[in-house]
Design a binder for these strands. Structure first.
Lengths: 342, 342
DNA sequence: CTGAAAGCGCTTACAG
DNA sequence: CTGAAAGCGCTTACAG
């Protein structure tokens, strides 16, 4: 462990601690020669600033908090990958915490996180990003934060999302254009806004193409494999089976694939299947699932960027706090794709 | 944000800061009445210690570093779940970092992590836990650390593992006892010790049951879905197909299931498939994969426990630094299970 | 462009 | 059992 401190290098360089401090923080008001000498010596002595001392003096912790509901979800994973990479290049570190699905305790956990670790900023992953109490807490506590894919209270803070509605519209239209005529949809959890947006995109694409599906082609799911299984069974036992099933996430789409296999249906010849999210699962099962690639890593990088530069300024106009990133249709083997949209 | 500090509550309680400090740290040398009064007032004022100040004074950071190769692996996820839960109850927080597969840079990343964040302890996940340079670095830096599932240099530090050899032995024996006679194995990545242990368990179970398999029943995999796909294709195109395939992880087992489906083989009637790890994937695909449940969450909790109590003491004998946790055979639908071993 | 002083909020080590 | 002093390693704000 390096025990070199500011003073050591100040003495060696024959300057004051302040000058060294200025050099370390890239303060422009330092003579070129002094700067060069000091930074050379700092390097030689392998100086590393003591983060705790700096934190105490400036109340900047160089930590970013990341709050999720379950650390085990693949959404969180992908987010971490982007977030960690970005942090590495900007001197920050990520403190992860999860609410473990307990919405009651979520507030306490977040309160504890900001009070104890004094993170410089917080990233809220869905569905935490939609909890008004959390938004209130952070606003009052004056902690900068970015919400990922929220769907309520959008003028309250920076938020990053993609256009779920349009993506679902595109998926559905792509299915229509590639010759499917009986397109079913499995909706996501009712308590998540994206479910509604994706469902609406599906409906509007049908309408804008003058198509109409029977009501039994709409199934309520809960973003889980299990719920996908149940929905898929009902859909594939219908007398007039759909020839395409668009599930609101990959997990449920994977379940549809399983049910199709159980019933000895060929995917995609008998039924095309499309998911949403492009999680690991999509390319792990056979056939690989056509899906929508969310820009999760990019969201993470942007979130870190907003939090670590002064962009998290509260005086911003609402229009500047909205960040919509691009998605991508990822057509793979689980759907018949005559016309490829890119 | 609470701006209450030690002094505020010292004044209000009519005692010195030291007494308050002692109460906050559960120092027994405080009169019962004083203690009661101080802690009541601290509660009322919602006092939260400033971690940076404490850190500066004690050089304890109350952070635990967790280093993995890829934050997106499900092994890491499960580990996080257990680790975060344990931290929550002990006042610590987790700083996550990943080496992003770059073994060259791993050392720098870890060096940076310990020097900048001054974590109180470090957890090394495989395969980082097997890098001798990292072990050296941490030993020299005098940072407490726990290695997860390492297979070399075992006397160098605390480590936590499960008995991979015995688990693989059990899986194989279970397959034999349930009537399988042609049992193949897909080996894991050659650079991970567990691959060797699992392979050896498979071999020894066969031998101890006087069974002999043809050499083409052994395939080299790399723990990836893709490698499992390749291996499974070769195995299932053999003139004398195996009636059971034991893959060294779930990812590869899932690939075997896919190939079986492609070839219109019934699982488990035509071929039984067993994986290893009990990842989400095992219960996400159909049929659910029989596998070995690793005690990953328990490993995480134990690791945090070792690091946060003084058990990380270097003076321990080697025998006390070894922690072997129990696994469990998880028999599901992908294998014919006449005799259930629990 | 550079420096001397005071302070961030806690704790260790020493008295009593 | 309780307290006054000094210090952890940095930075802010003020001089020059």
């Amino acid at each position: 462990m390096s025990k070199v401190k500011l003073q050591d290098i100040a003495i060696k360089a024959g300057v004051s601690m302040m000058t060294v401090s200025r050099v370390m923080n890239n303060d422009p008001k330092v003579g070129a020669k002094t700067r060069e000498k000091v930074s050379r010596i700092a390097n030689e002595m392998q100086y590393k600033p003591n983060i705790a001392a700096r934190h105490l003096a400036t109340s900047k912790s160089y930590f970013i908090g990341l709050v999720c509901e379950y650390a085990s979800s693949s959404y969180v994973n992908k987010f971490l990958v982007g977030g960690l990479r970005k942090c590495r290049t900007s001197g920050y570190h990520v403190v992860l915490d999860e609410t473990a699905g307990d919405r009651e305790k979520a507030l306490d956990i977040i309160k504890n996180l900001i009070e104890v670790t004094k993170v410089d900023g917080l990233i809220l992953l869905p569905p935490i990003s939609n909890m008004p109490e959390v938004v209130d807490l952070l606003s009052n506590a004056n902690v900068g934060f970015v919400r990922i894919a929220p769907d309520i209270n959008l003028s309250a803070s920076h938020y990053i999302c993609m256009d779920d509605y349009q993506a679902a519209f595109d998926v559905t239209e792509q299915l229509i254009k590639s010759g499917h005529t009986r397109i079913a949809h499995i909706i996501g959890s009712p308590n998540q806004g994206v479910s509604r947006l994706r469902y609406q995109g599906y409906l509007d694409a049908l309408r804008s193409n003058q198509k109409m599906m029977p009501p039994e082609y709409i199934e309520q799911g809960y973003f889980t494999y299990k719920s996908g299984l149940d929905a898929a069974k009902r859909l594939l036992e219908l007398p007039n089976k759909p020839d395409a099933i668009f599930a609101a996430n990959d997990e449920m789409a994977a379940a549809v694939v399983s049910v199709a296999h159980m019933k000895h249906l060929d995917v995609p010849q008998d039924v095309s299947i499309v998911g949403f999210d492009d999680t690991e699962l999509a390319t792990t099962i056979w056939p690989n699932i056509s899906t929508v690639t969310q820009p999760i890593k990019e969201m993470a990088e942007l979130a870190i960027d907003i939090l670590t530069t002064s962009k998290a300024d509260k005086t911003l106009k609402a229009s500047n706090m909205r960040h919509v990133l691009d998605y991508r249709l990822q057509l793979r083997d689980s759907s018949k794709n005559i016309v490829k949209i890119t």
